[in-house]
């Protein structure tokens, strides 16, 4: 019995299968617990789009620097809440203070573009997301170049 289980576990071809079984088991257990889970309506990031505003994402123009209403978990940490990026890294904060250019465009620093599209308050998330993309790209390009070289 133990030996047979060992045989199944010791083949890495079975890896995906085993993992899928585990996920399915968890999902099955989860399905039974669903009735006990309630949806929390007052979401962390409420978003109402004011179509008449000059900051409407699909109608750029007018005053570039303005604030939108954004609810943050920790407003005291986000002094620039409501601007393009609520959290500024020390470097971008420095740039924003000495130049008028940062914040005038959504692609002013990595993460900025996703930042504005997704949420205004979670700067570190977007940095990590771009890092993941970058890592995946680095692996793929290395493998590709090695095949050619």
């Amino acid at each position: 019995m133990i030996r047979r289980i060992s045989e199944i576990l010791s083949e890495y071809e079975n890896l995906t299968f085993l993992y899928a079984v585990l996920v399915l088991v968890v999902l099955l257990i989860g399905a039974f617990s669903l009735p006990t889970i309630t949806y929390q309506g007052d979401d962390l990031y409420p978003k109402t789009i004011d179509r008449t505003s000059t900051l409407d994402p699909y109608d750029r123009g007018g005053e570039p620097f303005n604030t939108t209403t954004v609810a943050a978990q920790y407003p005291e940490n986000s002094p620039y809440l409501g601007y393009v990026t609520a959290y500024l890294t020390p470097l971008s904060l420095f740039l924003a203070e000495i130049t008028p250019h940062l914040g005038t465009t959504i692609v002013s620093h990595p993460g900025g573009i996703i930042d504005e599209i997704l949420y205004n308050t979670r700067g570190l998330d977007t940095v990590v997301e771009t890092s993941i993309l970058f890592t995946a790209f680095a692996i793929a390009s290395y493998l590709f170049r090695r095949r050619n070289g």
Partner: peptide, 29 residues
């Protein structure tokens, strides 16, 4: 390669877990 497949698949439960936590509590902190 097998590991890669599992790691990719694993993002679904991973983000799913975070999403359910957010949906039920309204916060991720």
């Amino acid at each position: 390669y097998q590991y890669g497949i599992v790691a990719m698949v694993a993002t679904v439960p991973l983000f799913g877990g975070a999403a359910i936590a957010l949906a039920t509590t309204g916060t991720l902190s």
